[in-house]
Design a protein around this nucleic acid. Structure first.
Length: 323
DNA sequence: AACCAGGACACAA
DNA sequence: TTGTGTCATGGT
């Protein structure tokens, strides 16, 4: 793997591994001491160092603002942590997960990813998304070419000309790689809404997304046809934005909150999945029956203006430190 | 080999 | 308002 550009993004209080492996993004894989992933059209390698995060990209860069935006390196974490309630569960979660951040994702990829997330373990979400990107994303620029070498249908011709630029494959190349859920030699963009909208439900189900396929397809079509505008969400307040996202089939409170928090930066969004509900009941109301509604109300008022961050700390704390 | 997973939805009580 | 069945799939 050759990298054309690199930069050191100075930042402290940033746990890269915890952040990339905390169930907000699904396309990053650890390679030795680094993390390999894709942001937009860029294949990136990130390495945690003493002074910050070292970033390397395959394509040459003139401007790194897109990466600072994604990683949210400008955020002063200390301010956010100080806004958390000063209670035992929260303090323990912060001590255990200090440096955990919330990323700022591209809305469509985030929405699509979380439509695919319902009642799935994180490992399986990763596998589904890898298949989706391999089959329907665009191959990314490789170091040996100055432009995208070929489109999917022309793979055979291009391969015979220059095998080194091979970047296309409709399936996993070996059982081992399929089991790992990851290919090591090919990287693809996340398929656009327009691309997904052009597919059949059958093609999507072939990615093993099950009953989520019609939901993803419907959302992609509405967006591709201009009937649903993901950019418009930015201009709304939290309640309006949540209501708007929930108009999509397959998007309820939880998934809407994930998108609002991870893609639009609504820090007050507080997604409650089985892990977070478990954390709330078990850490805040041990051996006491609390109604669903009172629990929701507690969550909505107790964690302050950056409740979404607090939620991520509780989630990651439960999932990693508390088995 | 059951059980469960970063749910949503229609419908019943 | 809260409870139940249904939808697919495969790690653990």
């Amino acid at each position: 793997m050759k990298f054309a550009s690199k930069i050191l993004l100075p930042v402290r209080d940033y746990d890269l591994a915890a952040t990339l492996d905390s169930g907000q993004v699904f396309r990053w894989q650890q390679m030795e001491n680094s993390w390999i992933g894709v942001v937009g059209e860029n294949q990136v390698r990130l390495t945690q160092t003493e002074n910050g995060i070292l970033a390397q990209t395959v394509a040459p860069q003139k401007n790194w603002d897109w990466l600072r935006e994604f990683l949210q390196t400008e955020i002063e974490l200390e301010t956010i942590l100080k806004s958390f309630p000063d209670d035992e569960p929260m303090n323990r979660a912060v001590v255990a997960c200090r440096g955990l951040r919330i990323l700022r994702q591209e809305p469509w990829e985030c929405l699509a990813s979380f439509i695919l997330s319902s009642t799935k373990q994180i490992v399986q979400i990763r596998q589904i998304i890898v298949r989706l990107c391999e089959r329907f994303g665009e191959p990314l620029i490789r170091p040996s070419a100055t432009f995208s070498p070929f489109k999917r249908g022309e793979a055979k011709t291009a391969m015979s000309v220059n095998p080194a630029t091979r970047a296309c494959n409709f399936s996993f190349s070996s059982p081992n790689e399929e089991r790992a859920g990851v290919r090591s030699d090919s990287f693809f963009s996340f398929p656009s809404a327009k691309k997904i909208a052009s597919l059949s439900e059958r093609q999507l189900r072939a990615c093993k997304m099950g009953f989520r396929a019609p939901h993803l397809l419907a959302a992609a079509r509405q967006i591709a046809e201009g009937k649903f505008d993901l950019e418009k969400i930015r201009e709304l307040n939290y309640a309006e934005a949540q209501h708007e996202l929930m108009k999509l089939r397959g998007v309820g409170h939880k998934i809407a909150d994930c998108v609002l928090l991870f893609a639009y930066g609504f820090d007050s969004a507080f997604p409650v999945d089985v892990w977070v509900e478990r954390a709330l009941r078990q850490l805040y109301f041990p051996r006491r029956r609390i109604s669903e509604k009172r629990l929701k109300q507690f969550a909505a008022t107790h964690f302050g203006p950056h409740a979404g961050y607090a939620q991520q700390y509780l989630f990651h704390y439960m999932r990693t430190k508390m088995k």
